[in-house]
């Protein structure tokens, strides 16, 4: 057992896989010599050398194209796209190539690759370096979508992603890099598509992802003081989606809230709400409510950014008002 930051857990998790499997290698902009712009790949070049830890040109299409071609021919690449906003520059590779090649070749080709990327707001970086784009990926058949909220989940889910024979988009939240948590010693491998119930409560179910998880937990503590006991679910993966955990919790509590950092329209919570509406409508005791960033680009100033991304206070207020407490 060791206490690691989320940032350290990334390098720790990658190192675990590089040590285990000689076909794993990692590349991206500034990831080798400099240890990554977020310092999340520090020490890898020193331990594994320049054949397996490689700095690339600023060529996002070539980075992901190379990852795909390598994955098709026997390797397990981990490619980094520095900021998830930059996925828009190479979205063709993600959506038209990587996600579809197995299907359109009738299963002749496998692409066991991981695309890691810094995601999310809270860093005052403005509209082009702060987005939560995991719901873009969720909309494309053929991609697995992972977004851990704790250091232990970073290690375990990264291992599961590298070992998966499908392409995985792995969203690392920039505002969680400095957070700390216990990481069990020894090999750590988790299971994709499993949500975690991180707090039990009988009155409502709050489903959250990545940075929204600690906020939902903090909100639940405040709500407890007001007599509302909330269950908090850390979704961890959008695809595969652990609908069982959501449905069984909502069946018990009768109330569903989603907390999403993405802008409102077509956020992942819309899918969760629609599944609940279809499959456990009669267990509901009130409307399902989505707490999201409003449908705006992210502003830069701290006051503005804090005003739009769901806060502990906003979660508390929305839940309390809805449950009439």
């Amino acid at each position: 057992m060791a206490e690691l930051t989320y940032r350290e857990a990334i390098a720790y998790g990658i190192a675990q896989e590089l040590r285990r499997d000689p076909t794993v290698f990692i590349f991206g902009e500034d990831i080798a010599g400099a240890g990554g712009v977020f310092k999340s790949t520090v020490g890898l070049l020193e331990e594994f050398g320049p054949k397996r830890v490689i700095d690339t040109p600023i060529s996002e299409q070539a980075i992901l194209g190379a990852a795909m071609g390598a994955a098709m021919t026997g390797l397990r690449p981990i490619a980094e796209i520095m900021f998830s906003d930059f996925l828009a520059v190479c979205w063709d590779m993600v959506v038209n190539e990587i996600a579809k090649i197995r299907y359109m070749t009738n299963g002749q080709v496998s692409v066991p690759l991981v695309i890691r990327t810094g995601n999310g707001g809270g860093s005052r970086f403005g509209a082009q370096h702060s987005q939560s784009v995991e719901n873009w990926a969720m909309a494309v058949p053929g991609l697995k979508v992972v977004a851990p909220s704790t250091p232990a989940d970073v290690v375990g889910l990264l291992a599961a992603s590298v070992r998966d024979d499908n392409p995985v988009l792995f969203f690392e939240h920039k505002s969680l890099f400095a957070t700390k948590g216990e990481v069990p010693s020894g090999e750590l491998v988790d299971t994709l598509g499993t949500a975690k119930v991180v707090r039990h409560g009988k009155d409502c179910t709050i489903v959250a992802l990545a940075l929204m998880v600690p906020r939902a937990i903090a909100a639940a503590e405040v709500l407890a003081g007001r007599g509302i006991e909330a269950t908090v679910i850390d979704l961890r993966c959008l695809v595969p989606l652990d609908t069982q955990t959501i449905l069984s919790s909502v069946s018990e509590t009768g109330h569903l809230f989603t907390v999403e950092e993405n802008p409102r329209l077509c956020g992942w919570g819309a899918e969760v709400v629609s599944i609940v509406a279809e499959e456990c409508f009669w267990a509901l005791d009130g409307p399902s409510i989505r707490i999201t960033t409003p449908h705006v680009p992210l502003p830069s100033a701290d006051v503005l950014e804090d005003a739009v991304i769901p806060s502990v206070e906003r979660i508390v207020n929305v839940v309390a008002k809805s449950l009439d407490a």
């Binding site: 194209g65 071609g69 021919t73 026997g74 590779m93």
Partner: peptide
Amino acid sequence: AQLCIACGSAWSA
């Protein structure tokens, strides 16, 4: 697109 993907199989070899 195929030009970028081809870099990957070449890199792999």
